[in-house]
Structures are given as C-alpha cells and as structure tokens.
C-alpha cells in the first residue's frame, strides 16, 4: 500500500513517449504540471484545470484522459503519451498533424495538443467514424480561434484515408 504524506515528495516513475523517466512530486501535484515542470515535456498545455477545456489531454495506457484531472502519483508505472510522440524524430508530421496543417485546423495552437491526443485514441478505436461521432469527441475540447469546422474536416480526411477495416456504425 503506497502512502504519501501531504508535504512529502515521492518518486514517480513512468514511461513517457517510450522513455522510462522518474521525478519527485508531492501528492497534490497534477499530472499536467508533473509533465511540464517535473519532466520538461511542455507540449501538453494547461488551460482550465477543471476538465472542461481539454487542452491538457494525454494518453495514459493508450486512453485519452485529462492530465489536469489526474494526480501525478496516479501515473506511477503507466505509459503516458503526449503530443511530442506524434511527429517522426526528424520532425516530419504524422498524418493527423499534417491534415491539421493542410486544413488550417489550428491557429494559435493552444488547444491543438489535446485535440490531437484525443483523436489519436479515438481513431485507433474507431478508424472510420461518422461526422457526428467526430463532433461528439471534439465537444470535449474548446478552441477559441479557428472554430471547429476545419478541425472536423482535417479529422475526416485522416479517417477516410485510413486503410483500417470499416467498423459498424
């Protein structure tokens, strides 16, 4: 049974984008702040800190979650993926990122890392979604500059060019 007192720091080890890393944190530290300040992975953005805006969405064990609604200590031993994992080592954008660029689906880019991670999870589970399904998942994010139409178009392009088998519904 793991027990950590409020002002005590504990060592948290996890896999971030394929690399095993560890740092110390007190229990109240949010995963979003641990990624940015503890591990230096600043691609994940912090917006509302109560789960509404979606900017901080990351994958934990392959599943999209709000890193601001997860304690760093809860990520012990987990596999965390952030936006830094998407592009190739030489900087080449992955298909989802390229489609966002092609469709002007980002402007200031603040909300983009979270949206990309949500759809990395969702498109892996649902390679050929309907537009309604895309909009339902996108409703978990707030974007204040491009609006949502171009984001939907970008995701539709990636979904329709995917070679994965079509799912029902």
């Amino acid at each position: 049974m793991r027990a950590v007192k409020r002002d005590q720091k504990t060592r948290i080890a996890l896999t971030l984008n394929g690399r095993k890393l560890a740092a110390e944190a007190e229990p109240r530290l949010l995963l979003s702040d641990f990624l940015r300040h503890g591990l230096g992975a600043t691609g994940t953005h912090v917006g509302c800190e109560h789960g509404v805006c979606g900017a901080c969405t990351v994958l934990v064990d392959g599943v999209a979650v709000r890193s601001c609604l997860t304690l760093a200590v809860q990520a012990e031993g987990r596999e965390v993926r952030t936006v830094e994992s998407l592009a190739a080592p030489d900087g080449a954008l992955n298909p989802l990122q390229a489609a966002f660029r092609d469709h002007h689906a980002l402007q200031c880019g603040f909300c983009t890392p979270g949206i990309l991670m949500s759809f990395t999870d969702f498109l892996a589970r649902t390679p050929h979604p309907s537009e309604a399904q895309i909009r339902e998942v996108l409703s978990g994010h707030l974007c204040r500059c491009t609006g949502y139409a171009n984001i939907v178009e970008a995701i539709k392009e990636v979904a329709s060019s995917s070679h994965a088998p079509r799912s029902e519904g």
């Binding site: 793991r2 027990a3 409020r6 109240r28 800190e49 200590v73």
Partner: peptide, 17 residues
C-alpha cells in the same frame, strides 16, 4: 487552480480501503 495539500493513500485491497 491547484488543490490544497492532502495525504494520499493507495490501498491494494478493499479490506485495506
């Protein structure tokens, strides 16, 4: 905002909880 400090415990079984 950030939460106020708290102690954290992660029991492994229902009995511990």
């Amino acid at each position: 905002m950030k939460p106020r400090p708290f102690d954290y415990v992660q029991p492994d079984t229902v009995d511990e909880a």
